[in-house]
Each structure stands twice: as structure tokens, then as C-alpha cells.
């Protein structure tokens, strides 16, 4: 089962992304693309003539995907939550370096914003891992998923994660790192054809990583997990449709003012009350 989940995580991510696009279109009273649209996009990208800016750029992009996949695999095999978060950090750093490695203003701006976004969410992910440790007694995902739901003892931490979701999924109001209208995608701008496909797939894989974190809050209760994931999925899409983009410095301030404080409160609540 773990093998299956880890191996096909990109495929599931693509599927979720397809549902995501349809749901968003329906929320705007549009028909929206077919459910399998992301797959069509991928096959089309395979068919394009390959082009690249330089070698290092491509290699770092591929390593970004590999590291992200590795972190998901660690997750599915029930590894240590801190190692998972830091492997994910490694993958984001690869992407940022890829953005920096080309002399393109958009790519640089995107990488800068990605770095600031990393600065905003990384501490909260760590605090969340510590929260799981305090409620379940271990950092191991396998132990956390065999415990009672963690959301009962730390609802505030769950709200903090909900605030992070748009940031990780590159959705409004926290989509400044990608910002299709001003930066044309930020770090991913210089990739094309097959190489863009790698970045595209890793975006889909990221979705799985994020919702896996949401699922973790349900512990052993799979039904509750499905409810949490579906609920947060619709919530994120509704917020995406209802809000505009905020500036990157506001993003950092707002995430610290809300999610970080909530995470600390949750930790204080678990430890001392």
C-alpha cells in the first residue's frame, strides 16, 4: 500500500488538480475543463520540442521534483515527521536555486518571493511537527496515524495549517510567489516542454504533500481524515475565488501574525494547560 501510494503520488496529485480546476470553474459558474485536463497538458508538454536556458537550471529543476517525491515517499512509509519536513525544505531550496540560476528578472523575483514564503511557512511546519510529538508521543508518521485524532487536542494548530494551505498550493490570497499575471509563474518561467513538465508534475505532487499533512490530523480515523481533506479542499477553493492576491511582505506579516501565533498558542495549550 505504501509503495503504491508513494509511487503514484504524482498521478494522484494530477487527478486532484483536475478536480480542483473543475471545482473552481463551477464556483465561477463556468463549465471548466475536462477532469483529465492536467493529464492532457502533460502529454502535450511531452510532445513539445525541448528547449533550455542552461544545464544547471534543468538539473536543479529535476532534483526539486526528486526531493519532493522522496519526502512524499518518506511520508507514505511512515517516517520521521521532522525529516520529512526538512527533505521538503531541501526540495524547495533546489527550486529556489534553479530560479536564481538563470539571469531572468521574473525568475529571480519569483525565487525571492519563494524564499520569503519559505521563511513564512517553515517555522509553522516545525511547530506543527512538535505539536504532533506532544499529542502522540512520537515524531513518526506511522505512530501518529495509529493514534486518536490530533485535531481534538490541537484545533488551533489545524487552523494554522489551514492558513498555510493557500500558501503551499499557490492560491489566492497567498499566491504572490507564483503570481501568473505579474511574474508569469515566477521560478517556473524559464522551463519549457519536457522540462516544464517536471516542474508541473512537482506542483501536482506538492498538492499531495499538503493534503497528507491535513490527513495527519485525523490520526487513525480515516473517515474523519477524508472529511478534513475534502472540507479543506473546498474551503481553499472558495477562498481562492473570493480573494485577491496580497503583496509578499504583507504575506509574511500576515502569516506570522495569524498562523504562527495560533501554532504557538496551540503548543502552549497542549503543554501547560
Amino acid at each position: 500500500m505504501s509503495w503504491f501510494l508513494a509511487l503514484f503520488a504524482p498521478v494522484f496529485g494530477t487527478l486532484v488538480s483536475g478536480i480542483d480546476r473543475v471545482v473552481r470553474a463551477r464556483m465561477q459558474r463556468r463549465l471548466g475543463p475536462p477532469l483529465m485536463q492536467p493529464f492532457y497538458d502533460m502529454f502535450k508538454l511531452l510532445d513539445k520540442r525541448p528547449m533550455m536556458v542552461h544545464k544547471l537550471h534543468i538539473v536543479l529543476g529535476v532534483m526539486h521534483f526528486m526531493a519532493l517525491w522522496a519526502s512524499i515517499a518518506l511520508f507514505m512509509f511512515g517516517g520521521h515527521l521532522l525529516y520529512i519536513i526538512f527533505t521538503h525544505l531541501l526540495s524547495v531550496i533546489f527550486l529556489i536555486l534553479a530560479g536564481y540560476s538563470v539571469r531572468s528578472p521574473y525568475s529571480h523575483l519569483g525565487a525571492n518571493r519563494e524564499l520569503l514564503a519559505l521563511f513564512a511557512y517553515e517555522p509553522i511546519l516545525i511547530l506543527m511537527a512538535v505539536g504532533f510529538y506532544l499529542t502522540c508521543g512520537s515524531f513518526e508518521v506511522s505512530v501518529i496515524t495509529s493514534n486518536s485524532p490530533a485535531i481534538v487536542s490541537m484545533p488551533l494548530m489545524f487552523i494554522a495549517l489551514l492558513i498555510l494551505l493557500p500558501l503551499k498550493l499557490k492560491k489566492s490570497p497567498f499566491d504572490a510567489p507564483e503570481a501568473h499575471q505579474e511574474l508569469c509563474g515566477g521560478v517556473e518561467i524559464e522551463y519549457s516542454g519536457f522540462f516544464y513538465e517536471v516542474i508541473y508534475v512537482s506542483k501536482m505532487t506538492e498538492i499531495i504533500f499538503v493534503y497528507a499533512l491535513v490527513f495527519l490530523f485525523a490520526g487513525q480515523n480515516i473517515l474523519l481524515g477524508i472529511i478534513l481533506v475534502t472540507g479543506s479542499f473546498f474551503l481553499v477553493n472558495a477562498v481562492d475565488n473570493a480573494t485577491g492576491r496580497i503583496r509578499i511582505d504583507h504575506l509574511v506579516k500576515k502569516v506570522y501574525a495569524t498562523a504562527f501565533v495560533l501554532a504557538l498558542l496551540a503548543l502552549g495549550w497542549i503543554s501547560y494547560v
Partner: peptide, 13 residues
């Protein structure tokens, strides 16, 4: 550190 890396890495096509 990676702010510093931004300039180190940038390279023409």
C-alpha cells in the same frame, strides 16, 4: 544564506 546564493548562481544562457 540563500539570499547570498541568488547572485552567486545567476548565469547567462
Amino acid at each position: 544564506y540563500f539570499k547570498v546564493a541568488s547572485l552567486l548562481f545567476s548565469k547567462n544562457a
